[in-house]
Amino acid sequence: MRLYALAVYLFLYLPIAVIAVFSFNAGRHASQFTGFSVQWYGKALSNPFVTEALWTSFVVALSSALIASVFGTMAALALQGMKGRVRMVADALIYVAVMVPGIVIGIATLIALVTLFGWINPLLARLAPEGQAPQLAMGYGSLIAAHALFSMSLVIIILRARLAGMDRSLMEASADLYAPPFATFWQVTLPLIFPGILAGFLLSFTFSFDDFIIAFFVAGSETTLPIYVFSSIRRGVTPEINAIGTMVLAVSLILLVAAQLTLRRGIKTGAQ
């Protein structure tokens, strides 16, 4: 039994380890280890295509995670204890947003936004003075909006579990002591749910930073890091991709561990 478990863990982690080890390979050939070197990290980080894609991914991940955390928290608070039709619709929408495969979300967003922009752009052109009309196009905006949708569902799901397990008597006591609703929120509710919000933010960031399939459809002329990696792999396996891959994995691993720690620590303090 133990041996079996060990084998499965090896299966899960060996591929990650292989990439990490070979990213430190000195040789040009990806598959023969000829010595230790960090040169591919230097090469990757001095490649302007890589740094630009990294920056795009970072901006998109940060913005979408911030939007998702704020709006998702607001929605989770509003939905808390709510029953009836609104709750049912909200639950169904969250379920759909999480379960419909990314590829369908990507396609749907692409055709909806391109069509909408096709309607709006002529209107803008008529409103603005000659030649100065802003043009809506796929890019940062569509990337952030599409990632924020999934992340918002994630934040709402995490916070809902937290709010359900929370001691409501604390908030009632605060209200009994004549604290205005905002003070109750700021001094009682927010500190209690903050670990959940932080974990949701970290997960959202990770999701956006790693997402390929939605970005593939809605990125327009922008290139995120996963899109760059995907198109480079088509041109062959290189040590440079190993280095980029290791960095991407390292970023998500660090954020995931941070998310786990905040969630677990939060549960402990919440129980006290």
Partner: peptide, 15 residues
């Protein structure tokens, strides 16, 4: 692993 990039992890299998 489920939350880390499936792109990079599939790439590992190409390797």
């Amino acid at each position: 692993p489920f939350w880390t990039s499936i792109l990079i992890r599939s790439y590992a299998w190409i390797f």
